[in-house]
Design a protein around this nucleic acid. Structure first.
Lengths: 246, 246
DNA sequence: CGCGATATTGACCTGAGTCAATATACGTGG
DNA sequence: CCACGTATATTGACTCAGGTCAATATCGCG
């Protein structure tokens, strides 16, 4: 029934398991919270970060483990998940370059409440929580920036709560696609292309539903030419339509 | 059918629309993030806070308004809500003495994303966001403490997301009651008493369900002597049972 | 004591979950 | 570069938790 579609994935998918060393400074100084610092301070901070590459699917840390490091995504995409007893995972977020995760507060719960897994090949920079706290004590404006980011994340989580409480599955999937589009989309002739290997099951767990339902909703949208998708990509053709659902 | 129950509400319900002025210092210096500061610093900070009383039901601020103040609950309970188009509110949290709300970050979104309403008579202390940020720049350890609190809130919101995605209504209501018990419960012979005027509709919006369903679930639990409740109080008799549902 | 707001309960309905059979996309090796 | 095999996606049939609507009962206030 569905017409043959050309995959828009080029062969310019360069897995970067290893961070390009020259990029480290660039990435760190581009972080919203380090940006205002002097180059010299950043290079001192840079020395405290450790880099590490992961294959797609590798676990960066697991829920319940001792939480003692803060990570920054240098390249690739990382997914954060919570598990439930009966193996039903909930994906909380998917993080792109420049976003941080892991433990800031060595204080409160000293174990990671979520699992972090590489969704694509990933390179991270990481630092011990205590070293990071020392940096924040030394640079109060940086601490304020970090707080701003956390406030934004909290808003987003609360927005998710609202959606799960009050919106239909269709509305939630629309919201997830729009959000992914903003985070990882590239504008092309065919619409906004999201080049991420997200299975129906991944999307389902982001939207709080099941793979089968996700598939049904997305098939209907393909019929209506709202979106197009393959197994490792999604293109949003009619953004306005998705936005209008909310 | 239900046996006549004695209300456990004494007449010691003292509405404190106005903060007791002597309590201000005590409340502020008891805040987890000011606690380590010298008495002298706290008293300087104290002078920057403004106090204000509200009747139950009063709005402290509404979603969408310009966000420029940070509030601390000095007395009473405050509920935070998000609204949806079709008037279906979602209660994000209910805050007790010593918890803060409002805007920390003057930076990102400059309007409140949620509405804050007095659930009981309430007294707040508030400060402009920018003054608060100035305090944080001056006292970096305080900033770290605030970050810890924010991290804990974020965890809680993400936990809520997980529950809404993966748990049944019954499990979620159990969780809400347990959480309220921890936050506002007093241990009595009858069990843990929550003396808060929460309607079925309030509970429903905390658990992401409807008043009718909440009523059904709670009626069943009353039959089984797991809880008891009146219109302005709930007592948890069998905490273990509720915990076991998760 | 009586009234209005809130809660309870029943009857009914439907969105979305489950399970399972089939089809399709993409990576691999020939 | 094509063909094949496997993991993933699609789709249908069925079920049911929980939503909706509405009638009735209760609480606690004035």
């Amino acid at each position: 029934m569905t017409a043959r579609r050309e995959s828009p994935l080029g062969d310019d998918w360069i897995p970067t398991h290893q961070c390009n060393t020259e990029l480290r400074m660039e990435i760190l100084s581009d972080l919203p919270f380090f940006r205002p610092l002097a180059q010299e301070a950043i290079s001192r901070i840079n020395r405290q970060f450790v880099e590490r590459g992961y294959e797609a699917g590798d676990f960066i840390y697991m829920a319940g483990r001792k939480a003692q490091r803060l990570f920054v995504v240098a390249d690739g995409y990382v997914k954060l998940m919570r598990h439930t007893l009966r193996g039903k995972d909930v994906m909380l977020d998917i993080l792109a370059q420049g976003e941080f995760f892991g433990s800031i507060a060595s204080a409160n719960s000293d174990s990671y409440p979520e699992t972090a897994q590489a969704q694509t090949p990933v390179c991270t920079l990481s630092i011990s929580s205590s070293a990071f706290r020392a940096i924040l004590e030394e640079h109060p404006t940086t601490a304020l920036k970090v707080m701003d980011t956390m406030a934004a994340r909290l808003q987003e989580a609360q927005e998710m709560v609202r959606q799960l409480s009050a919106y239909s599955v269709e509305q939630r999937i629309a919201h997830v696609l729009l959000r992914l589009g903003n985070k990882a989309g590239e504008d092309r002739e065919m619409g906004r292309l999201i080049r991420l290997p997200l299975s129906r099951s991944d999307l389902a767990s982001l939207a709080g539903t099941t793979p089968a339902t996700t598939s049904r909703v997305m098939s209907a949208w393909q019929e209506q030419e709202v979106i197009q998708s393959g197994r490792k990509w999604i293109a949003i053709q009619d953004q306005a339509f998705l936005s209008s659902l909310e």
